[in-house]
Computed example of a mutant assay.
Amino acid sequence: MFLNLLLIFVPIAFFLEFTNANGTLIFAASALAILPLAGWMGRATEELAARAGSTIGGLLNATFGNATELIIAFFALQAGKIEVVKASIIGSILGNLLLVMGLAVFLGGLKFRTQRFNIQSAGLVTSMLTLSVIALLVPTVFDLAARQTEAAGLVERLDVNLSDATAVVLILLYVANIVFSLVTHKDVLSTADEEGEEHGPNWSVLRAVGVLLGATILVGFMSEFLVGSLEVATRSFGLSEFFVGLILIPIIGNAAEHAAAVLFALRNKMDLAMTIALGSTVQVALLVAPLLVLASLLIGSPMSLVVSPIEMVAVFAAVIIANSVVRDGETNWLEGALLLGVYVLIGSAVFFYPA
């Protein structure tokens, strides 16, 4: 696998970090090292899921699906780069809905005239996604309204309080979603693709756990190096931290997942491709974002879920077009091109957005 060749950047990143090399080189090496490590984390999780059964396996996949991005965001949170963390949350939602789904639909559509998927399953996920994104944006609307009547200092404290309450609600919704998907209605949401893809484990439990722990630890180190060199690298590349958080970090953190969705689409398994793109987005909104909010309290650097107007508009646009694509249960290459076009437009706006 091509990504495995990038493992050479793991020792390179350690060498550059501990020899106090140029920050730009550390950033580049760490980013490249994270790509294959994320892939190995995903492979180890799949092996454990194959042994644990569908219910526990689904929970494992849900838990570790966005682990790489969560680790990167946690170290950014520790470094006080709160705006980068919030941008990475929004960027992950945009990346999954527009880039991942767009590539899968576009490339699959070039090979197959029309691709179909379980409309009931996709519809339930998009409904959950719409509700969760609205919940994420409530603090932003609250902030805009409260600033009309209250002092900025008080509003910021209220923003944090509201975000904490929102985080708890979202985690409860995540638990409800897991129970619904894996227990009470798993027969409704199952697909022929999923049944055809089931396979026995190829690794022992010890090997899978060892790989998962080892990859997670290395991702932690790479994330710390990445965040520590972020400021130098952004200046060197002429990029804003906003662009890095919204565009680059989500792509780096979810590269292996992105590739899997496209490969399933090329095999005409659009059910699985949609599950990856939409399911990962729901995980970010219902689990990753609230966990980071609660973690910020423990770190002593409280983070609210208030985002910039451009982020708010971008998320609404992504959810609207994603809903329009999945509503009829089939896709073609033009719909994929539309999703990618919206992503490029948003990426361009963020690139030119004043630092």
Rank of each mutant, 00 (worst) to 15 (best):
T281D: 12
I320R: 13
F243R: 05
V342M: 06
L48E: 03
L263E: 07
I26R: 11
Y353D: 15
V188R: 14
A152D: 13
F316T: 11
P201N: 05
V125S: 07
E311T: 03
V284H: 06
E156T: 04
L226Q: 06
A259N: 09
R43K: 15
L37M: 15
T281C: 15
I82R: 03
F9H: 01
I119N: 11
G196A: 02
N4P: 00
A146P: 09
K186S: 08
F75E: 01
I134P: 01
N4L: 15
L158A: 11
S296V: 01
L98V: 10
H185F: 09
S223M: 06
L59M: 11
V141P: 02
A285K: 09
N161P: 00
T191P: 09
F264P: 00
I119V: 15
E311G: 10
A73D: 09
L345R: 05
F106V: 00
L170V: 05
G109D: 06
Q78M: 15
N118C: 05
V84T: 14
F316P: 00
A152P: 08
L162N: 04
A273D: 11
I346W: 09
E150T: 08
N268L: 05
G153C: 04
A62G: 10
V205K: 10
F106S: 03
I8P: 08
Y343C: 03
S190M: 07
A67P: 00
T140Q: 10
A273Q: 13
W203G: 00
G220S: 11
M303C: 02
A317E: 08
E257G: 00
A33H: 12
A233V: 11
E197F: 00
G153A: 14
A337R: 01
R267W: 03
S92C: 12
T184I: 09
V319E: 13
G123A: 00
G200S: 08
V307F: 02
V160M: 06
S92Q: 06
A31R: 12
V325T: 12
E47S: 08
A62Q: 07
V125F: 06
E194Q: 13
F9Q: 00
E47F: 00
L334R: 15
P36V: 03
L77G: 01
L7K: 06
N177D: 13
T166G: 02
Q78T: 13
F221V: 08
A322R: 04
R327M: 14
L136Q: 07
L172K: 14
V10E: 02
F14E: 04
T166V: 13
G228L: 02
V175S: 13
L77C: 04
L272P: 12
T281R: 08
L334H: 14
E311R: 10
N268T: 09
L77T: 01
Q78C: 07
V10A: 10
S190H: 05
L103S: 03
G300K: 05
A44N: 07
L339F: 02
A215I: 06
